[in-house]
């Protein structure tokens, strides 16, 4: 009796162990995986999609809510100074970080690219601001950064600053189509 009980206990324990490790290894839960489309929320950084493109452009995933809003862009300009973005990117010409008023964009200049760049950081030096800045301010920064290169409606673009003149004001800069270069 005793030995049978021990044996059944051992069997039970074994079953638990199997369920915990072995069964997990053996399971094939492909039905539960999120649909592939659910993983395309983030912007793509490649224009090369194996098998060809399906549906809309995978690059563009929407604009900043402040894209056409003068107040939001102006707030972005203020924050660009106060969060020390200006320390690395200067007034768009760059320095420690790359220029933001030219047409070369390492990781793309769509709103979602810029949002990700600010939140996640980038490997060659861009700090990650995740959990440091509220999302609404990040979208204001995104709108301002796009406006630096003239990529905003003229009516919403900032004009001359009340500071030392550093170059042509945002509302007088020619917008140049951005190119994602991929390299610093």
């Amino acid at each position: 009796m005793m030995s049978r009980r021990v044996a059944s206990c051992a069997l039970l324990l074994c079953g638990v162990l199997l369920a915990g490790a072995g069964c997990e290894r053996e399971s094939r839960p492909f039905q539960q995986l999120p649909a592939a489309s659910a993983r395309t929320e983030r912007p793509l950084l490649s224009q090369n999609t194996p098998g060809g493109r399906v549906g809309e452009s995978p690059i563009d995933t929407g604009a900043s809510p402040f894209q056409e809003n003068a107040w939001g862009i102006s707030e972005g300009k203020r924050l660009f100074e106060q969060y020390n973005c200006v320390g690395c990117h200067a007034h768009g010409g760059g320095g420690m970080g790359p220029a933001l008023i030219d047409d070369r964009w390492i990781y793309g200049n769509r709103a979602a690219n810029l949002f990700d760049t600010i939140v996640q950081g980038r490997p060659n030096g861009m700090p990650a601001f995740r959990n440091k800045i509220p999302d609404s301010q990040i979208w204001q920064l995104v709108a301002y950064i796009q406006s630096m290169g003239g990529h905003a409606p003229l009516a919403a673009l900032p004009g001359r600053s009340d500071h030392m003149r550093v170059g042509t004001p945002e509302n007088a800069r020619p917008a140049t189509p951005a190119v994602q270069t991929g390299h610093p």
């Binding site: 200067a90 768009g92 010409g93 760059g94 320095g95 008023i101 170059g167």
Partner: peptide, 20 residues
Amino acid sequence: GAVVAGQLDVRDATAALGFA
């Protein structure tokens, strides 16, 4: 030389801490 090494945009006078 950051204007060349870092491909800065010299239309901004303050690029590279004003060296540009």
